[in-house]
């Protein structure tokens, strides 16, 4: 019996820091690849694929470490076919997208292949939200907006990552646009879930998770938006911090 007791702010039973970090890594790397496929040149696509690959692999490692029985992780793949389990689907999305990203990185590929891999990567990003939506926790399941929020945040963070590496005018507009959508989604989600998940929403606004929530709003969202014109690099770094804080407070608030 091997259990790895990483500090987990929710206690061992909860999904905590490691899951949030994984959501962030997969979301950011994945977002960078998706954006580059949609809007960037061949060269950049391959570079972004590398980042997405790193995110997917690191994220998967964190996921495995978070298990109560990490050494049994192969059961996820060899244990049978369970399409009703979002966790099972996600495992396959991770595996397939990882392989696909390797392929894109390894050699020049056609647009078609890149789009196919982009579809897999989009599934990885989306499943992290659907995983939460499919639970019995009101803060996660009461509104249909978590997938919107996670996709928008992935695009923002992925765009910021690309900005950090090679700033570009088009990227800037994209990051700003997606950040606005993201902000709107956070607000709508909180309003939507407040009636059924008061405890969670209050924990975010004024409770134990307020630091993460307001940290996101101010540091990870507001300031980068204001700085976007002058300090692209700083804005990008703060956006990345914000993307992590967002995942963190969403994951924890669902378990308040």
């Amino acid at each position: 019996m091997i259990t790895l007791n990483f500090p987990n702010p929710m206690g061992e039973e909860g999904w905590g820091l490691w899951v949030a970090l994984y959501f962030f890594l997969a979301g950011t790397g994945g977002g960078a690849y998706l954006i580059s496929v949609l809007y960037c040149s061949q060269e950049r696509v391959r570079r972004a694929a590398l980042w997405a690959f790193v995110g997917v692999v690191l994220g998967s490692v964190l996921l495995i470490l978070d298990l109560g029985q990490p050494l049994r992780f192969a059961n996820l793949i060899l244990g049978g076919v369970y399409p009703s389990s979002v966790m099972w689907l996600g495992t396959w999305f991770l595996l397939l997208s990882g392989a696909g990203l390797l392929w894109v990185m390894a050699r020049p590929t056609s647009r078609g292949v890149q789009y196919l891999v982009a579809f897999l990567v989009a599934l990885v990003v989306a499943y992290t939200a659907v995983l939460l939506t499919a639970t019995a926790r009101p803060f996660w399941n009461a509104s249909p907006l978590l997938p919107w929020l996670f996709l928008a945040s992935s695009a923002t963070a992925g765009g910021a990552l690309l900005q950090l590496l090679a700033p570009h005018e088009r990227l800037k507009r994209l990051v700003v646009g997606m950040a606005l959508v993201e902000g709107l989604m956070v607000a709508l989600h909180l309003l939507w879930t407040y009636p059924v998940a008061q405890g969670a929403v209050l924990a975010l606004l004024v409770g134990p998770l307020a630091w993460a929530f307001w940290g996101f709003v101010v540091l990870g969202w507001g300031i980068p938006l204001a700085l976007e014109r002058r300090h692209v690099g700083l804005a990008a770094v703060l956006t990345l911090v914000g993307a992590f804080l967002l995942r963190y407070f969403v994951v924890l608030a669902g378990q308040v």
């Binding site: 949609l38 979002v86 249909p144 695009a155 507009r173």
Partner: peptide, 24 residues
């Protein structure tokens, strides 16, 4: 719940992808 989530994710991806493309 999962089906609802996938549906929502599909719509989100389509709308935001096209919206972005359009704006940019």
């Amino acid at each position: 719940r999962a089906m609802g989530g996938w549906l929502s994710a599909g719509i989100a991806a389509a709308v935001m992808g096209m919206g972005l493309k359009f704006i940019v």
